[in-house]
Computed example of a mutant assay.
Amino acid sequence: MLQYNIIVAGNPMNNMFPNFKPVTFQGPSGTGSTVPTNEFYNSYEEGDLRAVNQEGFFYTSYYTNGSGEPFDLGAPYIFKHFNQRALGSEGNPGNRANNLNVPLIRFAEVLLIYAEAQNEAGGPNALAYEGLKRIRDRAQLETPPLAEFTTESFREAVWRERWHELAYEQITWFDMLRLRKVYNEITNGFDKFVGHENLSSNQTLQERHYLMPFPLPETQNNPNLTPNNPGY
Rank of each mutant, 00 (worst) to 15 (best):
E169I: 05
N202G: 15
V8T: 15
Q220K: 15
N53T: 05
H209N: 13
V194H: 02
A9L: 13
E207N: 12
A115D: 03
L2A: 09
P28L: 02
G88V: 04
A117P: 13
E161I: 04
R155F: 03
F82H: 04
F71M: 06
P70S: 10
P213D: 06
S89L: 03
Q220D: 14
Q84R: 13
K133M: 06
K21T: 06
K192V: 08
Q170H: 12
L225G: 11
L132T: 05
K192N: 14
L146K: 07
V110T: 12
A147G: 06
E156W: 01
R134I: 04
D72H: 07
M1G: 11
E130P: 04
E218K: 03
G231Y: 10
R178I: 04
A86V: 08
I186V: 15
E55Y: 08
R85A: 15
I78Y: 13
R155H: 08
R136N: 14
Q206V: 15
G56I: 10
P18S: 02
P12E: 00
F57N: 08
P76T: 03
M176E: 12
S67D: 06
Y41P: 02
N222S: 08
Y114E: 08
T31A: 11
E161Q: 13
P227N: 09
L211G: 07
N229Y: 12
Y114H: 11
E130K: 15
G47H: 04
Q206T: 14
E109L: 06
A147D: 14
F79D: 03
E207F: 09
W159M: 03
A75K: 10
Q26I: 13
S89A: 07
D191C: 09
Y114K: 09
P213L: 01
P22G: 03
E130A: 14
R155K: 10
E218L: 11
P93N: 01
